[in-house]
Design a protein around this nucleic acid. Structure first.
Length: 330
DNA sequence: AAGTGAAGCAACCGCCGAACC
DNA sequence: GGGTTCGGCGGTTGCTTCACT
């Protein structure tokens, strides 16, 4: 024969929020007798509750060493780092944060941190940059509407974000290149349809002030800055590969190592030139509203759609092949 | 001021490995 | 050794508060 049941189903036990009187009974009993059998505790303490309910109330609320109130920056940082390693192992995460309970951390994650990471374009499950199309759509709005960038960045310290995910800025820039590809696809092929969840102005007016702001933010330390530079080197590589792909089709493309540029269209569908400068870790829109593309480091290109599908396969790098992209976007 | 939806969070539910008989 | 329960954990619910119209 095994153990006797925790809670007697024949007795109507109280559920729901605890009253002050119940709290006092529980605390008083544990102070006097210490922690023992949760099953025996309710009856001994004069509580009409399940032992499980008593344990939960004690561990999550009444324990004297519990720290209540807002999580500070260090705690947030710790939770995110631990979550990236441990996943949803809340009790193990809580073990690293004295005074915090697994339930509290779980709630805080679900209500605050998860949203912050999503806003930053970081997948809260994988802790890697998001490359899904919903994020692309959101990104388009962020990049084309700089005033919205301020509150977003203030709500989640960009310095922390970059420290946690050094390549995020690179991913943002990379996604901007993707924007451009989608735009070219939609412009070149009137029969092609963009994903339904993508705004029609996708790729228009690629105002990169947001990224410039990131790099001019004084509180980004040298270490992050150097990570950021590496990030832009990656963008440079992506862009180079894109240009190489275009060049293979005898397009005249700029492949300069020091000054990566690409073209897009502004809100009037006029060509506009964007340059990425890796040395300075800045992204600038150097020329816009011109009727023709000219300038020291860039030449207008006219890619075929197949070139662009190749580039999508390469840039997104999530297993979606050229043919799948073609199928999806046509 | 009232209605409504969103956000926050305490508490419950159900599962699972460990412990017990 | 096997059946049963406990304790702990993660997921989910639902109540309360807040913000907005």
């Amino acid at each position: 024969m095994g153990r006797s049941p925790c809670c007697d189903d024949n007795i109507e036990l109280k559920k729901g929020p605890w009253t002050q009187e119940e709290d006092e009974k529980l605390v008083s009993y544990i102070k006097k007798h210490g922690l023992g059998s949760w099953r025996a505790l309710p009856k001994a303490a004069g509580l009409n509750r399940c032992g499980k309910s008593c344990r939960l109330r004690w561990t999550n609320y009444l324990r004297p060493d519990i720290k209540r109130g807002h999580f500070n920056e260090q705690e947030e940082d710790m939770i995110i780092k631990l979550h990236s390693v441990l996943g949803n192992k809340w009790s193990r995460i809580a073990a690293h944060l004295p005074g915090r309970t697994d339930n509290e951390i779980k709630n805080y994650w679900n209500t605050h941190l998860r949203k912050k990471l999503l806003q930053m374009g970081i997948d809260p499950v994988t802790h890697k940059p998001r490359t899904d199309l919903n994020f692309l759509a959101n990104l388009s709005q962020i990049l084309t509407n700089p005033p919205n960038l301020g509150p977003l960045m203030n709500s989640w310290d960009i310095n922390n974000a970059l420290r946690l995910q050094p390549n995020v800025a690179a991913e943002v820039a990379k996604l901007h290149v993707l924007q451009n590809i989608f735009q070219i696809l939609s412009t070149n092929n009137s029969s092609s349809s963009l994903p339904t969840n993508m705004p029609l102005n996708m790729g228009l007016n690629p105002n990169l002030n947001g990224l410039s702001n990131i790099n001019s933010t004084n509180n980004i330390d040298n270490g992050v800055f150097s990570s950021s530079s590496q990030g832009f080197c990656q963008v440079q590589n992506y862009t180079q590969e894109l240009y190489q792909s275009l060049d293979n089709n005898n397009n005249n493309c700029d492949k300069s190592l020091s000054n990566i540029s690409y073209e897009t269209l502004d809100e009037n569908r006029l060509p506009s030139l964007v340059t990425i400068s890796p040395e300075a870790s800045t992204v600038n829109q150097v020329e816009s509203n011109t009727n023709s593309i000219s300038g020291g480091s860039s030449t207008m290109f006219n890619p075929t759609t197949d070139d662009l599908f190749d580039s999508l396969e390469m840039l997104v790098d999530d297993g979606t092949t050229h043919d799948l992209w073609k199928q999806f976007l046509n």
